[in-house]
Design a binder for these strands. Structure first.
Lengths: 122, 122
DNA sequence: ATTACTGTACTAACACAATAATACAACGCA
DNA sequence: TGCGTTGTATTATTGTGTTAGTACAGTAAT
């Protein structure tokens, strides 16, 4: 089924986030080939150009590398993966805390609401 | 000083978020007049049109209302403010949990990292 | 009445995101 | 060799966000 996107962020950014998460969560192992651009684009129901742009983002981050015309692969550098995992997580958490503050939500309230929301959904 | 914006979201959306937070946190009291569009635009260092678009968002949410050519005011409906506060908070929390999941962060980890990040910064 | 300020509306211009439709070179394989 | 797949590049088009500049009508204060 086509992936879900919101209208706040650019699609290629959302795709990059999703794929980044899949890689960091180990859906694709180091040195494993990921599906070709066209197939990913088809699955996500976006234009191949958009998918390629998302992939180039992950390439710049060092999560993926391209073997010329053979395909795209997850980096073999496991420490790079780990470093990226840390960076992404820290940036995200900092970002969420900032957003919460902008909405007038303190850290304590944030913690409280997250546990609450979690209990109901899963 | 000019407000800070990221390039991921549209500027008017970020402005709306910021002002929404200020209203919900009580920077502007119910029925209090907010600064005119042009002044806010100047402070934020954005175009008046962009600021107006942000304000119209908050108007649709019922947080602000316009008194013709007199100015824009915070709603007098305190229950509406409270309802908005709840809605905004719930949507935000749900959104953050989703984003965290996309990055491979479980709810438990999320709680842990937020307390950690909070301890260091404040 | 005049002046200054308010929200609001409008056009033009530019940048970027996204789609669409191709095209091409390199590689693997039969 | 030839075919199919790979990543990559190109051009054109559409929609939207943002800036810029201008204009207008209603309100308040003088």
């Amino acid at each position: 089924m086509p992936w879900k996107f919101n209208s706040r962020e650019a699609v290629f950014v959302q795709i990059a986030s999703r794929l980044r998460g899949e890689i960091l969560r180990g859906k694709y192992q180091p040195d494993e080939q990921i599906p070709p651009v066209r197939q990913l684009a088809f699955e996500a129901a976006v234009n191949p150009n958009t998918m390629q742009k998302a992939l180039s983002v992950l390439e710049e981050e060092g999560l993926l590398y391209s073997r010329g015309t053979v395909g795209r692969f997850v980096t073999t550098d496991r420490s790079a993966l780990e470093r990226c995992r840390e960076t992404v997580r820290k940036d995200a958490v900092r970002h969420w805390i900032e957003e919460a503050a902008a909405l007038g939500i303190t850290r304590e309230e944030l913690l409280h609401y997250i546990s609450e929301e979690g209990e109901k959904s899963e």
